[in-house]
Design a protein around this nucleic acid. Structure first.
Lengths: 236, 236
DNA sequence: CCAATAGTGTCTGTTAGACAATATACA
DNA sequence: TGTATATTGTCTAACAGACACTATTGG
């Protein structure tokens, strides 16, 4: 009955990241290739970036997530949110394990780290299709990704999250497109603009983006570090 | 660089529960007293019920939460939701630890286990006041409770969660009262009824609850095991 | 009848959605 | 001028909130 806590077997503890960005009019997920060493689980398979907590280096779960994000992308302060913890006896062949899933939203122009860095060869972007990606993922990462996408899509209905997928300055049509890509459905132009502008989510920077037609006003987020919650969700 | 994962120090892993119910027109939180053994951290202090994962007995984090819920309350299938994971080097004096916080909503008439059971002396209900409770809580449980309350109050704006704080059959005024208690503010009678009835959240059981005035219709939840999401939140 | 609470009806304000109309660039 | 896209305006529907009104019990 009164086994002492410290005598319990300790599970493995890790952090995994679902890092999203927007490239080529599609939502993209950053994947890393697992080492090909056959002694490792899922050798050579694609997986969410992540890894075990290093109790000597990581002050907290979130610090661990930020460290891994920086290692993989070179990005230090994008949108980062914990989705939750998943733990059971079977998800890692090495034993009872718990992982903590974080969503990170980064601008495509900030992703230089993953393409230029030394680990570039072991990294790729995969377009999101439905509730997953094409390549089969290691461990239970397909399940984690599904949870991340559900959380992301749910919050897009009533927050400004897709703004974090864009560069620092952007046009309202670009912002609308980012919402539409995440949601997977078209939005009404007029309603979208009213919603965004009346929420005071953005402010004009006084410049325009030229194109092959009428140029669009450029805006930036008023508060780069806090998501905006809209008074009403988008639709039923 | 290539330390093998299994060589990392493993954090302690636990589950904690914020078990809420409704007694005396107030939202109540179930607390347990920590053992008085001075070798234990926070001896004799009040804390959220919970404890370490038992990798031999618990198939998963949620199974662990359900087991602890059953042990403390005798309730087996109420509303249970994970809020998230908290882990850092300092939150437990015994070392780097991660806990996983679950919210449980139970009906007051189902809480026989905690008052009659053998562990009754080490258990109490404390009314929620603001974002916490009166007694000082052990560990970082005040912070966890605050997160649980924020999550609960946020979801009450657009879901049917407070219905799980009531017995199986209830009147609409009782349901409205449960929403008001969780939210901490009054709601309009007419708007509330329209909202609940048009969401097809409840169905009449064909009986009435007599009182000292006009009797109220009794209802029950249509789906006891799935929360309803309303098309719009309550207010800005 | 009166008190108390349950339940309904009416009106207003807000905002999303549909869609038409106008504005401004470049070729 | 023509085409493409940005931006604005008008109308409607849905629903929350305020609040007045009616209904039904017990005393």
């Amino acid at each position: 009955m009164s086994r002492r806590p410290l005598q319990f077997d300790r599970p493995l503890v890790s952090v995994d990241l679902a890092i999203f960005t927007l490239v080529g009019d599609a939502l993209q997920l950053l994947l890393v290739k697992r080492p090909s060493d056959p002694a490792e689980p899922f050798p050579g398979a694609w997986a969410l970036p992540g890894g075990f907590i290093d109790t000597a280096r990581d002050a907290s779960l979130e610090a661990c997530a930020r460290r891994k994000l920086l290692e993989k992308t070179g990005v230090s302060a994008p949108y980062l949110e914990q989705v939750g913890g998943w733990g059971d006896a079977k998800r890692d062949p090495r034993g009872w394990s718990v992982t903590h899933l974080y969503i990170a939203l980064v601008a495509p122009d900030a992703l230089t780290g993953s393409t230029d860095g030394p680990a570039a060869a072991a990294t790729r972007l995969a377009p999101v299709e439905g509730l997953g990606v094409k390549p089969r993922l290691a461990f239970d990462h397909a399940r984690l990704l599904e949870a991340a996408l559900k959380r992301l899509r749910a919050k897009v209905e009533y927050t400004s999250l897709p703004a974090y997928l864009l560069p620092e300055s952007f046009t309202l049509p670009q912002l609308q497109r980012s919402f539409e890509i995440v949601l997977g459905r078209a939005l009404d132009k007029s309603a979208f603009r009213t919603r965004v502008l009346s929420a005071e989510l953005v402010e004009p920077i006084g410049a325009q983006q030229p194109g092959r037609s009428r140029p669009a006003e450029l805006y930036r987020l008023k508060q780069r570090h806090q998501a905006v919650f809209f008074p009403r969700p988008l639709a039923g």
